[in-house]
């Protein structure tokens, strides 16, 4: 194995784990969302992400082994995507932050010639709908009732410190992270302001912020999520439909 394939695999693992873990979190809403349309919408977004995860993880190895048989510390997803769903506002804030990032990321990868350009060209169109969904809900909740405004603000504040990690360099990922981060900040700021919300002012990078998921260090709720996600496969090794 050459150093270059290893770097590409490392990048595929990071992006694939982001998609897989967020897909699982969104799937937890199935049957529990506040309205039926959202139940369907969140499951559909989860399905898109799962499709992306399958393509990316298959570049690294066997998708099932990678998803179901790795230990917590072997996962390379950002800490943002593993955060629990919380109330609906938390899920929407996580969606806003992540889909804005993913749209910019796939947009850059699609315009290049690298190993991810084919997937990115396809997925960027799917993610545009995810971002649109998140932005509309941010506006509705932020500029809604006093209760929805308070909750949306609380959610945006709570997840803010996890957003710096998305712009940390990843081996094998050839993108302009500074340009991406500037666009991300501009885009998120515009949506939050239109939604009458305050852009959180806490730090996003540095010693007191979160963000070592890419190094395999995860937050406490991730272990429980994995236990649920992997339980069936581990209890019945080799089982098929």
């Amino acid at each position: 194995m050459t150093a270059q394939t290893t770097a590409i695999e490392a990048a595929a693992l990071a992006l694939g784990d982001d998609a897989l873990v967020l897909s699982h979190r969104l799937g937890e809403w199935a049957g529990n969302a506040p309205v039926l349309e959202e139940d369907v919408a969140l499951a559909n977004i989860a399905l898109d992400l799962l499709g992306q995860a399958r393509v990316l993880l298959s570049l690294v190895g066997d998708e099932d082994e990678l998803a179901y048989l790795r230990e917590e510390r072997a996962f390379r997803n950002t800490q943002l995507v593993e955060q629990p769903n919380g109330d609906f506002a938390h899920t929407i804030a996580r969606q806003l932050y992540f889909s804005t990032y993913q749209k910019l990321l796939y947009g850059q990868l699609a315009s290049g010639e690298g190993p991810f350009s084919g997937l990115a060209a396809k997925a960027v169109k799917e993610v545009a709908y995810h971002q649109d969904h998140a932005e509309h809900w941010t506006l509705r909740l932020g500029d809604g009732t006093p209760e929805s405004h308070t909750r949306m603000q609380r959610a945006c504040d709570a997840l803010w410190r996890y957003t710096g990690e998305m712009f940390q360099p990843v081996d094998g990922l050839d993108v302009d992270l500074t340009a991406m981060e500037n666009s991300w900040l501009a885009s998120v700021t515009a949506v939050l302001e239109q939604a009458t919300l305050t852009v959180p002012d806490g730090p996003r990078t540095g010693a007191w912020t979160a963000g070592a998921g890419r190094q395999g260090l995860h937050t406490e709720p991730f272990g429980r999520m994995l236990a649920e996600m992997q339980h069936l496969h581990r209890s019945h090794p080799g089982a098929t439909w």
Binding site: E37, V40, L47
Partner: peptide, 28 residues
């Protein structure tokens, strides 16, 4: 009504004339 419907490729809409809901194969 909703950007996502019975499958990922469709959106759910409603006709304001005949009041029937329907799926729209959304542009991709």
């Amino acid at each position: 009504l909703s950007r996502f419907s019975s499958t990922a490729c469709k959106a759910l809409r409603r006709c304001t004339t005949c009041r029937e809901p329907f799926d729209h194969f959304k542009e991709l």
